[in-house]
Nucleic acid binder design. Structure first.
Lengths: 244, 244
DNA sequence: CATAGAATGTGTTTGAAGTACATAATGTAA
DNA sequence: TTACATTATGTACTTCAAACACATTCTATG
């Protein structure tokens, strides 16, 4: 006998009082990259229970909103960015994870260029924090962050998803610094170049770095096709992007 | 201004009426294996809207129940099995995916040995179905099934998770048949043996198949350590298992 | 009992991809 | 001009996956 498979008036009533009383939220782990460090966008929690702690950017899913739409809305509200890469990672639903009631949350991660969103420090208490050494987040947000970071680490060698974190043009050294920041390990320069170039993700621009205090490196960019597919949101958003 | 970060009486009221009215369910994609075919456990839907269609085994998450507990309960209720491997895959939350109201569902997959659960045909309308060629499931369950199958396919070469689908002792031929059923492709016998034995998952029992109409193959079993880790539920269940 | 047939068990070769490591070339700065 | 840092590229060794061939062991049949 499962609750979903009865079909009486009593059931309807019982179901709605007993079961349809959960809120669903989305939490966005928004990664950025600055100063050779991986960062994450956090907001000061204003719940008494988590006074002074930082939390991920999230919000409740609205009644007229698909789950998958919600993180795009959060991202648009918080960063002004749309058509971004966004991926569902995992759902967290411990009974007491939220002090205000039963809130089940689905975590998404995203990658945006910090240059495009330097939060005005007065606006609201949104700040970029280094991922490394981050502790004591509100709710179960440390667990969510760790889970999303692990997923990100698993995916960066498989898919060209990190290029939102750089400018359009970049040197291989900059790209390697980024990979090292995400993975938390050092990579061999020569092997890294080989692996990346073999993937065929990059286009050689035949340009050189400028204003660097050393020998300039060649500049590359991500292939246009791939930028559309992996950096600008999901397939349903593709049409709008392509038509621009 | 996000709903989660206000904190007034009005907010409380508005929040609870507007947001805390979703039900969360879990749906279990329970894979089995029989007759060299991958199967999935389905139940006849008794919702009018899906008359005659099959659906996955699921249930609403209870108020006093962690999300992660729910699929274990469903599995226990439906199959009598506990301490099984179970993994969260993805959460589905389209507005109208459930005709009875807003139900967000988290999908899990599991692997159990059909021998241990031959549903009594009278009991309730639970049956094993071949995964291949399955169409027209209730709700968005076809999408959920496809998503879980894809995840399963991605994982079977990385982790020793499929051994619940076989008896304790098995030949490499039987194991290969299983992999082929899951992946939907043919594998080369010699390369398969090499890949599997290199992983160090198996123990050679120094026994032979019996009652087979051809040359008997050697029998293997999964290493005990791995059976505990990957076939008998998650870490939180490990202690209970180990103490048996 | 001999032989054919079918499935098991164990290689080798080849090429692609990953790892470890060295050297040449180009720019800055003293 | 020289020292130094950084870019750019190459080579040998290993690991991994795919394609492929042959010998062994049991059953079945005449």
């Amino acid at each position: 006998m499962t609750a979903l498979h009865l079909k009486t008036a009593e059931f309807e009533k019982a179901t709605h009082s007993d079961f349809f009383n959960i809120a669903v939220s989305v939490d966005c782990v928004i990664f950025g990259y600055e100063d050779k460090k991986l960062k994450v966008l956090l907001i000061k929690s204003d719940l008494e229970e988590f006074d002074g702690l930082w939390s991920l950017l999230g919000d409740l899913v609205r009644p007229n909103e698909d789950l998958e739409e919600a993180p795009y809305r959060v991202l648009l509200d918080r960063t002004g960015l749309k058509d971004v890469f966004l991926q569902q990672v995992q759902t967290f639903g411990s009974i007491n994870r939220h002090p205000s009631g039963r809130v089940v949350t689905t975590a998404y991660y995203s990658l945006i260029n910090i240059i495009n969103h330097q939060p005005k420090s007065l606006e609201n208490e949104v700040h970029w924090h280094s991922v490394k050494g981050l502790e004591n987040l509100a709710f179960d947000h440390k667990l969510i962050l760790d889970t999303c970071l692990k997923r990100l680490q698993e995916q960066i060698m498989e898919h060209p998803i990190v290029f939102n974190l750089l400018g359009e043009k970049f040197s291989l050294r900059q790209l390697q610094d980024l990979y090292e920041a995400i993975l938390g390990i050092d990579l061999d320069r020569r092997n890294f170049r080989k692996r990346i170039t073999l993937k065929g993700w990059l286009v050689d621009l035949n340009e050189m770095e400028e204003d660097v205090p050393h020998r300039p490196g060649k500049l590359y960019k991500l292939r246009n096709q791939l930028r559309k597919e992996f950096c600008l949101g999901e397939k349903k958003h593709l049409e709008a992007v392509v038509s621009n």
